[in-house]
Design a protein around this nucleic acid. Sequence first.
DNA 1: CCATTCTTTGACGCCGACGTAAAAAAACTC
DNA 2: GAGTTTTTTTACGTCGGCGTCAAAGAATGG
Lengths: 199, 199
Amino acid sequence: MARPKNQDERRAHLIQAVIDTTASTGLRSLSLADVARSAGLTRGAVLYYYDDLDALLSEAYRAGMERFCDRRDALRDTIADPAKLLGETIRAGLPTGPDDALMRLLYEFDVVAGSSPLHSTLVEAMYERQLATYRHVLERGAEAGVFDLLLDTSTAALNLVALEDAYGLHIVGGNGQISVGRAVEAMFDAARLFGAPPV
Amino acid sequence: MARPKNQDERRAHLIQAVIDTTASTGLRSLSLADVARSAGLTRGAVLYYYDDLDALLSEAYRAGMERFCDRRDALRDTIADPAKLLGETIRAGLPTGPDDALMRLLYEFDVVAGSSPLHSTLVEAMYERQLATYRHVLERGAEAGVFDLLLDTSTAALNLVALEDAYGLHIVGGNGQISVGRAVEAMFDAARLFGAPPV
DNA sequence: CCATTCTTTGACGCCGACGTAAAAAAACTC
DNA sequence: GAGTTTTTTTACGTCGGCGTCAAAGAATGG
């Protein structure tokens, strides 16, 4: 009949372009032209796939969030020991460094949220998933008798997510005073005192 | 001779306008015109006092940071009991609610940093002050024998600041899932387990 | 090779924001 | 009220980004 559609691949390509561009120029001053250039296209072509920049950004965030959370939650199937699982969960939750493009997108978007209701929804969904992840790990450890929680699971999870967010933001935001290693140490110390010693 | 200068007052007025405007429209889409309107002036008049929007924003951040930190550090002279001091320090470090204009400016600026070196410097200075505040409180409590820290002071302070940042950001960012009360509770729990029970 | 559908380009007009500089207004002193 | 300095307005020109749309350029089946 005619030329077949091939939009999924293009969309994935565009999302990657968003991630790359965010890493270098930041999200706040991100233009359609930037993304298009990074993808090797023109503005018009990008608009062909997404109504506007906002739609593309939301999609990129959603995809990034899922990639991040799924990968981390997959640890549950690989690691049986709760202490080890907690340790790896913490490590996987922090950026690998200031140039971790995906994490940077997630954090920058976090900040930019509050603008549109859609953004807020996405960010809150992400937050829910982070909480669920930690809660799950803590519960498993408690059931196995490896953890002896001195806090309700919810509060412990809340605090661990908060620590993760703050350290992640600092690392990605270029606060040179906090290295990845230091952040992991600090989170480990906190978790240990909460009654859940990670490895 | 002639009309006397009265710039200090005007500058303070403009800074307040920045805080107000940030509270309503957010920092990311803040224009000179917005600030001018909020101050009851024209763009030109604002430019008469500051070279550009960035200079005004930096000044507003610096002023806001000092106001915040000074007020909080003043607690040290009022409250003798370390446990009480820690509790009040934690409370004073969190926004009063989603509409805490000053805190919102500080957090939004935090995020926008990384752009200019000046911004980064300011944000790092703020971070240093937060750390110093907590370190000081913890040390005082340890010396008085009220706290029995299970973490080095630095790590405990690091974690408390991280918790403060994360919860503050959530509150101000309109994450409805975290109330101020819940944040205080969680931080109190954490501090308690660190060996520094707040009141 | 042709008809059809998908994809991309390129040019256009439209804001919104910025910075400048000249001119008007205001606030004083004498 | 005249002179002087500070403050504010107003009216440009410029730049960058966005959205639209018609037209050109693939890619494929018949």
